[in-house]
């Protein structure tokens, strides 16, 4: 089992934002754009989430150029993709079942 509990909104969007190599500030920007400014991650929240996902192997370091002090970039791993898709399946199930609310009410 890769993930038994639902993903937090922060983790869900970070996984999405590192589908292609992305750095910290880029991740915050992309998530803000995707959600129309609703989800703007704090730097501490992002730092903690990235480190925990690196440890779990959901994302990996894509580049770290120490010489030029280039920004670290992160990339989704196949395990991370699996976790994400499992969550999408769970969300689809929620949406499918949500339709039952209307059936009952009619």
């Amino acid at each position: 089992m890769t993930n038994s509990t639902p993903l937090t909104e922060a983790l869900f969007y970070i996984l999405l934002a590192v589908k292609t190599p992305n750095h910290g500030y880029g991740i915050i920007q992309d998530i803000s754009d995707m959600t129309g400014g609703r989800v703007v991650l704090g730097p501490g929240t992002l730092y903690g989430a990235i480190n925990s996902m690196l440890t779990k192997g959901w994302i990996r370091l894509y580049s770290e150029d120490k010489e030029s002090r280039k920004k670290k970039e992160y990339l989704l791993t196949s395990l991370g993709r699996e976790v994400f898709l499992n969550e999408v399946d769970r969300l689809k199930e929620l949406i499918k079942n949500a339709g039952k609310m209307d059936e009952q009410g009619a």
Binding site: T8, E9, A10, V40, L41, G42, P43, G44, T45, G48, A49
Partner: peptide, 15 residues
């Protein structure tokens, strides 16, 4: 822009 280190409940709880 605004500055808040921890923005969601999970990370605030951890903090």
């Amino acid at each position: 822009g605004p500055f808040e280190m921890y923005t969601d409940a999970q990370s605030k709880i951890a903090h």
